[in-house]
Design a protein around this nucleic acid. Structure first.
Lengths: 115, 115
DNA sequence: TTGACGCGTAGGGGATCGCCTACCTATTCT
DNA sequence: AGAATAGGTAGGCGATCCCCTACGCGTCAA
């Protein structure tokens, strides 16, 4: 049921690899669902360019659109970000150990027994 | 002390936007610090190409290198991933709400009942 | 010293990115 | 109906990505 192959993962990470798109996500999170023009007002960029960014976000599943008259209301869809957090999770112990200053010890331990 | 501007953030997200580089991070996490050749063996790619990926990861602060003879031992540096998690955090309540909402929706789904 | 090894860098080439200016459709207002 | 508004699409263009093949530089072995 979970179609999450590397392709979907790839689209999400690629979508996040652009500051404009991350800013769009922030705007949708802080200001709620908005039409395209309202979003475009925050950027020094022509509206068609923003439309393409919205398409990348849509194909990554990070936003959804809902038609309302002649407007398209874009809404944040955060579910793919949960998968990013899942991806991040196995790394968590590494930066926590690092902060405690225990990292160097573990880093020299591939898989063998100290005696 | 924390030079984390948008530039550093941008480098981290851009570094993660490539499946090969994410796989390098996984290898360093699961198998520990390794020289370049050992990493390159896992990819269908010439070694210089992997070297460039390692440079991107290094400039994002995600790996560090330690010279040992004629080898360069690469090690995972997970600290920038903690910043990604920080970036992710304000979105968390959105996907939790969404999942709960989806659960409620499915509970009330009347016309989807296979077998 | 001569050669083999480990790895980075230079530079080229095709694909993709990210911006732009038209241009098109669909909806709403006179 | 005609004009204005909202927004997607086409296509061009320079920049960047990601791969490649040379090649350079330092280190170990003979």
């Amino acid at each position: 049921m979970n179609g999450t192959g590397t392709a979907a993962e790839d689209r999400v990470f690629a979508a996040l690899a652009n500051a404009t798109r991350r800013e769009v996500l922030r705007l949708l999170r802080e200001c709620g669902p908005q039409p395209v023009q309202a979003l475009a007002d925050h950027f020094d960029m022509r509206r068609p360019s923003l439309s393409e960014h919205l398409r990348v976000l849509r194909e990554a599943g990070l936003v959804s659109e809902q038609r309302s008259g002649r407007q398209r209301i874009y809404r944040l869809e955060a579910a793919p970000l949960a998968e990013v957090q899942d991806w991040l999770h196995p790394y968590e112990r590494f930066w926590r150990e690092r902060l405690r200053g225990l990292g160097d010890l573990l880093d020299r331990m591939p898989d063998d027994d100290p005696s």
